[in-house]
Design a protein around this nucleic acid. Sequence first.
DNA 1: TTCCCTAATGCAAACGTTTGCATGATTTTA
DNA 2: TAAAATCATGCAAACGTTTGCATTAGGGAA
Lengths: 348, 348
Amino acid sequence: MKFYGHLMSRATIKDIAREAGVSPSTVSRALADHSAISGATKSRIEAIARRLHYRPNLQAKSLRTHSTKTIALILPEINSFFVPEMMYGINSAAAERGFSVMMFQSDNQLEREKALLWYATELSADGILLSLSEESENLDHVQQLVQSGTPVLLLDKTGRAEEFPGITIDGAGTTARAVAHLLEKGHRRFGGVFGHPALSITQNRRSGYLHAIDQAGLSEMQCPTLEVTQILEISQNLRRFLAAFPDLTALFLMSDELMVHTHHELCAMGIRIPEQLSLIAISDGIAPYYLHPNITHLHHSGFEMGYQAARTLTDAIKAQKNDGTRLKSAVLETKLCVLDSVRQHLQL
Amino acid sequence: MKFYGHLMSRATIKDIAREAGVSPSTVSRALADHSAISGATKSRIEAIARRLHYRPNLQAKSLRTHSTKTIALILPEINSFFVPEMMYGINSAAAERGFSVMMFQSDNQLEREKALLWYATELSADGILLSLSEESENLDHVQQLVQSGTPVLLLDKTGRAEEFPGITIDGAGTTARAVAHLLEKGHRRFGGVFGHPALSITQNRRSGYLHAIDQAGLSEMQCPTLEVTQILEISQNLRRFLAAFPDLTALFLMSDELMVHTHHELCAMGIRIPEQLSLIAISDGIAPYYLHPNITHLHHSGFEMGYQAARTLTDAIKAQKNDGTRLKSAVLETKLCVLDSVRQHLQL
DNA sequence: TTCCCTAATGCAAACGTTTGCATGATTTTA
DNA sequence: TAAAATCATGCAAACGTTTGCATTAGGGAA
């Protein structure tokens, strides 16, 4: 135990050993509850450790054991939808399993994403949770990382990559279920509002939409789609869209962001929901309750996704030491929550 | 360089040294751009490092240098308001300064908060950002940590603690400004809606409210307050409150959460905003734009708070090595954003 | 020529753990 | 009673860095 200025430095295993009159190895084993150490010695050492406020140095431990009990989370951005819930889930699962989470944001830039992946390996993160940036078309950098032996699990924004394990929802299927609900409620003329066409998440959901209306014998003339490239332009886009298709009785919104902005715009236009226009969305299930009327949606739980991703990853990390079990992809369930924004439409 | 199974292990400084025919110390200095190493050697070593995909082992470095370039962030919860913006700010400032952020949540439990603080020191976090749990009345655990030499900076939820440095907003002053805006707009009968009375954040804002109406010569009979203990009960609370004080022309909402719930409830009651009732809130400036009409609010930037907190903390960490500069508290500005939810009230 | 100075590099210890192997003491077995 | 087995502990090396203090070689000054 040394003194720096007025501060007592952290007690180490050696300090405890000296105090207890045993060797450092005995202390190490005692604190790890190793079977070769007698009960008497263990309790004596534990008492001293407590008295000295002993805290193991996790860097030293990691250095020795090659395990940091840390996962890195790399997100394209931190917004107010979905992401907080997902973080909550990740944190919960990680904490339950004794893992810590380091959080990074790539700001939707491929270069930053690469740099952060690299940095995560410098930190010796035991595993990586990665949600891809918008620019991440080519995934060579991920491939490289996987080859280096670090478990990488994609989540939410997984690009087109079936080559890597990831946790996602079935965007196409979920969208199809939303469409099915509109059909059940008698709607035959509705629109689909989608995000940036370059994103795989948009493409999945849009293809689900098109396939569903096709199955129902409807054409894209009857059920047109709107792709919103710039969220700031949604106001004009939406007005133009509704003006071009004045007979729509409902809208499908592919995300929370589109939902709140669309809802706002409709309020501003004086359109009553659901009397004049019904709404159904894919949502993480929070914002629908803030809006009025409450929005019928397909609940895509951020918590669930985060929790499952962190659980899968940490389990794989533990398993890795034994067999070389590979990470498994998963497609999460979404659940239809019928609230107040879709009305029964009477067909003429 | 060793081989484990089919995987090549990470190259170390020793590998580079062997390859370059120099000693490990030379490699270390070369990569650190130390002046004692010749330019020729430096570039030779850098080339080899690149070729071998060398990544420094940060655990080893930390062990040697007693600096992890890491800060721990401990939050009571991760919700959809304010917190994501704050995290974004923290991450941005940390990243700019070469720090990583480990994220933990105390779930509003004092015991977990204590455990996490302890764990953060085991991780040798260079500093800690702490937003207090609801249960954290007594701050002995923080005191203990500070004495151990770890820089701790409170943010947002700082309790009643003036003894510790923290980043906050002026809750009382901000509330007073909101009240002033209502007064300017001619309102003389309005209500204040507040959160759980045990929270210091509530107490600050409420005292600001009471002081402001007192200054204006109004009584609590004329400008009553409502304290919402359970957010789920806001519906009944609000209806009862409005029934008890039917002559109110405006409401002040102390937080985003109260704002969205109140707005929703008023919509459900068919009360038109701002024609029948004006609203003003303290908000992080995101949700006000989702609601219709857009809510006039005092903008309390989560990004700003997070950014400033992380900047202050990392600067202090760097300074600590030289002088023992102490962390400085700061009270952030809030800005009045006049939108569409407060109407001019004509007095009789 | 001798001496000193500077530039470039190497040696070895240290940071705080963990762990395979050896050691010594005690108990069990034959 | 001697050998073997068991138990509790210690020794020392290793993880991958950094860094104070040599060491060496070359070049200039005296």
